[in-house]
Design a protein around this nucleic acid. Structure first.
Lengths: 202, 202
DNA sequence: GTCTATATACCGATAGAC
DNA sequence: GTCTATCGGTATATAGAC
């Protein structure tokens, strides 16, 4: 017994984090126990504590990993060529697809907006969003030179994210259909709304 | 000792729920213990369990109360007179102010979008949003007869709510200022964006 | 209706053998 | 590096006196 389950310590840590991420996304920090995670990886809690000094550290490492994975993807969603309108259209399509592909990142982001302290939020902003947020704000400036780029960038991201966020509620609201959860449908609606306003969405 | 702390059972229940709501909003279901709530109301846990059969029931009653309080407020935010543009402008101003006035409702809504099961989400949709959601969708139809009213209503609410939701993150993102958290600033930005699109927000 | 006391289970975290 | 065993604390929930 007690045979090594992992190739090395790095392998063990990665395996643990990859099991922890979806669980923290689903139930939040206080909704997941170290025993849950240990059982999922099929190790004892003592072994888990050998790899991570405490639960808080495991949580932070899991967040950092989930966010690092996604920051990489986000850095490639801004198109370089075309008119500002074309680049906005392309960005929204890519961003919507990226955010709906796996929901763990988006859900962890939502949880951090609710529960994150200043340190974690600053990390999230600086290491995940800052660079691309600035690029989107820049793009907004090109489309509307006198607009508040910060507000506009938040609006662009918010339109996409809120449609994904309300997916479980949508079916119970008037006019809700399954097709409304299709990333392409959402992206097209958001793009139209941004470029033409409510009147252009006909 | 053991003197009655409340006028009657209804008074006790209301007091408990009013203490529970902000705590569930701040820390979520699993982040608040029955002991926490009992201590806040200055009763024993046994007394708390005399008024509520279990924690789940107390949580559901607290949500129902918080949502009922707000549903009342929401039902008055749609103006009856003026052009569709004027009514949209008025609605966004009122809705933004209502949602930012006390944050408990909005935060509990965010938590339910993350953690709510089908029963709770259906209740939330039907008893809180349905009626006003339909009215907003109707207003969207007036402004853009061929648009998807459901998507548009989600977008309108989402623009406002996401700006409030990202308040704690905003200060760490490029261009973020405290004025961006002002309900009037948010409402004006959202209204402009909806009525004129990104180009009108100059 | 409110209490003290407690049953029972789970929590985070650790000791110490191998 | 992994385990069994367990510590000390807290969780939900209940029993029974007043």
């Amino acid at each position: 017994m007690a045979r090594a389950k992992f190739l090395n310590s790095t392998d063990a840590v990665n395996t643990i984090i990859n099991e922890a991420i979806p669980r923290f996304a689903k139930a939040g920090f206080s909704g997941v126990s170290m025993r849950d995670i240990a059982k999922a990886v099929d190790i004892s809690t003592a072994t888990l504590y050998h790899h991570f000094p405490d639960k808080q550290t495991l949580y932070l490492r899991s967040m950092a990993q989930a966010f690092a994975d996604k920051a990489e993807g986000i850095s490639t969603v801004l198109a370089e060529k075309g008119t500002p309108q074309q680049r906005l259209t392309k960005f929204i399509a890519r961003f919507t697809k990226l955010m709906s592909q796996d929901s763990h990142f988006r859900i962890l982001l939502q949880r951090e907006l609710l529960d994150g302290d200043e340190t974690r939020l600053r990390l999230l902003a600086e290491q995940v969003f800052q660079s691309q947020f600035a690029n989107v704000a820049e793009l907004a400036k090109e489309l509307a030179p006198n607009c508040d780029a910060h507000l506009m960038a938040i609006s662009i991201a918010g339109l996409v994210l809120f449609h994904l966020e309300t997916t479980p509620l949508r079916q119970f609201l008037p006019g809700g259909h399954a097709e409304h959860n299709d990333p392409d449908v959402i992206a097209q609606h958001v793009t139209m709304l941004l470029l033409k306003g409510i009147k252009g969405c006909g």
